[in-house]
Amino acid sequence: MTTLSEQDIRKIAHLARLQIPKDELKVHGENLTKILNFVEAINTVDTSDIKPMAHPQNLAQRLREDEVIETNQRELFQKLAPLTEAGLYLVPKVINNTEEE
């Protein structure tokens, strides 16, 4: 049986970038533990020869021709943004060095 501790919840919440108030860690831990135990049932079947199914359709992806169709809609899109300047979206200073992923 899987049991998730408050520490586990803290770690998961960080990965998912969700702030969870301290006093809610426990109840989230309990709920997630219940859910994980509910889904444990999948382990009652041997699936070693089964190919995983990621899509309901057993089809190939359809591809698009290389054409530029989109036009500049910056003004429209940035009307929705909480904070912009000089056409850029602003976020609190990224301390991490410039990273190219």
Partner: peptide, 21 residues
């Protein structure tokens, strides 16, 4: 000419966010 997953242009050096659909 266009992006991997969208039909926006890939030209280098455009004004910020004008080629982001």
């Amino acid at each position: 000419k266009s992006k991997l997953f969208s039909a926006a242009a890939t030209t280098f050096g455009a004004e910020p966010n004008t080629q982001a659909c």
